[in-house]
Design a protein around this nucleic acid. Structure first.
Lengths: 173, 173
DNA sequence: CCATAATGATTACAAAATGGAACGATTGTC
DNA sequence: GACAATCGTTCCATTTTGTAATCATTATGG
């Protein structure tokens, strides 16, 4: 009975519009809806690799640009530096990342992926590809390209850094 | 210096691809990125109306189908019933919603918008329209329609209920 | 070159958010 | 009429969250 209410609600919404033309809201709402839905699916998928979305984000970040400082990485992942420490600790204990002292500035740690971390990153990429497939299975290859083009232009216009997920942190007031 | 690291990172990413063709990830990543970004912008926008995204969701829900029970609404908003109570309390104290006893089944409350709540919902719709404009300002009207069509079909294919935001609740394990 | 400010990593801690369990009131079922 | 189920509610333990303080190191600038 729990999820039934949603189905009921969906039926209500559809009943007052022609099939195939029902209003699903504007692009912004669809973006938020599909983004959140996709994030859920992806989180479930990588849970099989024993990874959270934030952990996956760090691995991907380190895969592209190794040797970053904890502060930089914490900023990009949208978490305070204080929380990054135990966060990185866990991955270090699992032997996925490595803290190396920066010789020129001994305040910083340079984070690197271990071989084991690289292997897991490869698994992660596979999961990402499968996820892309799952999300876009309703589109033709041409439509898929079109969508990526439109979204990419929106992302650029919004000045979003490529590959950097803003996170779903709440707005403090 | 805080946000500079992101700019730096963006520059790094773009430097290894032709301008205008830089990889911003697949559609799924762009969806999550733009969805989260848009959610942030929208949250900031409605903060001026003293509303959180969840509160806005409840008002919109009640605007479309008044008289729902708390349990139903809690389910759709993705929160346990126990948290819905103080959540609804706040909106009731502000005079935006009303709890009416259901005469046929006195276990349920039927939630309704007050006149004040209806007024705020109108403001909310304006904010939503402005938000849509802000997010899609880089697209032509034709592209805008195209995008809504593609996203709408994806949402349907993923069996997402129209107008129901899955929320950003984390996955428990 | 030394005093002082600034920065990175870390720890400590308080505030807030979260979901489950239990409870009373009411309704459906047999 | 006994019993299970449901709704709204309260209570509470756990987790999550961000800020402030701390220590080591590096930059600044007179």
């Amino acid at each position: 009975m729990e999820r039934l209410s949603i189905v009921y609600h969906a039926a209500m919404s559809m009943s007052r519009a022609h099939e195939g033309t029902e209003s699903r809201g504007g692009a912004a709402f669809l973006l938020a809806q599909l983004g959140a839905h996709g994030a859920q699916l992806f989180a479930q998928r990588i849970a099989e690799l024993d990874l959270t979305p934030a952990q996956a984000g760090l691995l991907r970040l380190l895969g592209r640009s190794p040797g970053r400082s904890q502060r930089e990485l914490a900023d990009q992942l949208g978490m305070p530096a204080s929380r990054f420490v135990p966060f990185a600790d866990k991955l270090e204990e699992r032997g996925l990342i490595e803290r190396r002292r920066n010789t020129s500035d001994r305040r910083l740690y340079a984070l690197h992926l271990t071989d084991k971390g690289l292997e897991l990153l490869a698994e992660l990429r596979k999961a990402g590809a499968a996820h892309e497939q799952e999300m876009c299975q309703g589109l033709t290859p041409e439509e898929h390209r079109q969508l990526i083009d439109l979204l990419g232009r929106m992302a650029r216009q919004q000045q979003l850094a490529p590959g950097v997920h803003p996170g779903y942190r709440s707005i403090r007031r």
